[in-house]
Design a binder for these strands. Structure first.
Lengths: 351, 351
DNA sequence: AGGTACTGTGGGAGCGCTCCCACAAGTGAT
DNA sequence: ATCACTTGTGGGAGCGCTCCCACAGTACCT
């Protein structure tokens, strides 16, 4: 159907040209009004607006995208299977923040899952076709090639959780260092002096930062900084259990544990129970994420909350700036855009 | 950035014209190859494909959309707040089905929430701009103006759950009538003879059909068809409780209840417990939806399962057909496209 | 040999918009 | 009166593609 020739001149949707004719002005003027340019007299603007209303004119997105070389669309890329997306409140919180920030924009948000190889293939094509003006990347693993692809294509992008201290992409993160510090300071204030730490996967930058925060807080508080109080975990429950058992073997006198995630803390709790230690009487326990697990644990788990929704907003803000600048942070060397949001310690019965 | 004149001729993305030059053919031929037209000789096709690969050519979507008057995008419209979308497995199941059917297509799926008035306003603009080739509409209320807007704009659309027997839009539904019948037949086969029914909101077509199925099944089985065995509910738990209490008052001798939803059944269960009736010993209970509630109820609830994921697939299939035909079902009078999928009774301890 | 078909191909015209140049008209300084 | 701006406006050119017409070449009939 349609395509060319003298097609549907009368029947179809009105064009900018028809609006111009109706308002008795030129095409350029209508375009200026539509796009909110200040360089139009009030009288002319009013006339055009009347014509637009009468004709029910709506700009043709495709034509605009072609001529202006932009799409007014943004992709939220989730490098996970859909199931995880729906299962974890993290994503819906993030989405809410992003949506809130976007709602007074003309931009359109696309949700793209890239869990399988097939989906990733499609995504690469999609990005290569420049079908979006910018990309929001959440939950990226350290070895993910996606960020580099984005940098190479020079597509503005913002990542949640930088992959390292040398992250080239603009990024938003919560204050992992500060969060860890607050956990340790909280335990110290409760009179605990031999505080252990079960780390997350050490190839995750945030996990490294939590270790840094833990160490510095211990040192600043003048507490026991024995390296044997640190044991590796991997964010999993089983990892937490094993690490806890090892810590109890090495330092049976420990009186508190800061775990790098709530799930890890759940594992630690099992090991503590198995060893006959009471929480919090014998050993105080603090987790990270303030997830549902924390609230439902027995006893309820003290945890460090990250402002996920705020992070979504911040990501969107950064991205809109990047797009406005039309120069991805990656190409500007050290002048990176970053945002780090404060965490909040939620104290419960476990500490 | 770009715009016009002799812009980025060398640097930017390759165009179809450049591919044509490289392959030593005309623009038309490249277009045919890209779009998989059979009217190209094998030799020419191969040459073009080489040029495409060498140049890393990716078609410009905007230009294609403008010239061909199509977008290759489909919207899944959810007329609910995002929170409900994430809370109910219904949507994620539906999405999975839709996605599966779409994955071997070039089409792009957009997820659009239209819970608030503001969002609905935006959606209307969006549709008026014909930014999608078709729309999937899930969870529509009887008085929703959205379907009519779609019909008026002549945008191909498929609705999940027709609003009435006279639904003009193409639709996919589960077999509410048959599902209700199977519930009643199941109870009858368990030896129950005085089977009550708590309906859903009667302005929902599916709820009406369930009543029809209930009535016909009773009649065909030669059971008690006393109209006093039917009481209105509204899909809610409280509604189920009230209706159950009323039914017990009117027909204290009833020995089974078929509730129009699992949530309703949960309410009925409370009322039965309050009246000292044991489930299933005194009264057998069957729900509808086979939701998580059914599995976790005490006792576990027998329920009618709808094939949500299959419905998603069916919707997508119907829509793709509609789009291919380029004539919305609404404009073809009685030649409507519909699909009705079978339900399945999941028997548990409550019956 | 002439006709009729079909296959494969090139390229003009056009999709509806934005960008920018050109230019008219007004304003104020010289 | 002249110049130098500024403000507002019209419209040409171009974005990269698809559609379709025209036409060359080949195949198969009369």
């Amino acid at each position: 159907m349609a395509g060319h020739g003298t097609r549907g001149r009368s029947g179809g949707r009105p064009t900018l040209e028809e609006v111009a004719a109706r308002a008795g002005v030129g095409r350029g003027t209508v375009s200026r009004v539509i796009n909110g340019s200040p360089r139009v007299s009030d009288a002319t603007r009013a006339a055009v607006e009347v014509a637009v209303a009468e004709l029910g004119y709506v700009p043709n997105t495709a034509a605009r995208a072609l001529a202006a070389n932009r799409t007014d669309a943004i992709a939220l890329v989730v490098p996970e299977p859909e199931t995880r997306f729906f299962a974890e409140p993290y994503f819906s919180d993030m989405l809410r923040g992003v949506g809130a920030e976007l709602s007074d924009t003309e931009m359109q948000l696309l949700l793209i899952f890239a869990g399988s190889d097939r989906e990733r293939q499609r995504l690469a094509q999609y990005l290569a076709a420049h079908r979006v003006d910018g990309v929001l990347l959440v939950s990226v693993h350290a070895d993910d090639p996606l960020p580099d692809l984005l940098a190479q294509l020079e597509i503005p992008a913002v990542i949640s959780g930088p992959r390292s201290a040398a992250e080239r992409l603009a990024s938003v993160d919560s204050d992992n260092y500060g969060g860890a510090r607050s956990a340790v300071e909280h335990l110290a204030s409760r009179g605990r002096g031999r505080i252990a730490h079960i780390t997350g996967r050490m190839d995750v930058y945030g996990a490294q930062r939590r270790v840094d925060g833990y160490r510095d807080a211990l040192r600043d508080a003048g507490l026991d900084t024995d390296e044997r109080l640190i044991e590796r975990g991997d964010f999993s429950e089983e990892g937490g259990r094993l690490a806890m058992a090892e810590l109890l073997r090495r330092r049976p006198d420990l009186d508190a544990v800061f775990a790098a995630s709530d799930v890890t803390a759940a594992g630690a709790r099992h090991a503590l129970r198995a060893a006959g230690r009471r929480i919090p009487d014998d050993v105080a326990l603090v987790g990270y994420d303030d997830s549902a697990i924390a609230r439902h644990m027995d006893p309820p788990l003290t945890s460090v909350r990250q402002p996920i929704q705020e992070m979504g907003r911040a990501m969107m803000n950064l991205l809109l700036t990047e797009i406005a600048d039309r120069r991805p942070a990656a190409s500007r060397g050290l002048d990176r855009h970053q945002a780090v949001l404060a965490t909040e310690l939620v104290a419960r019965a476990s500490s």
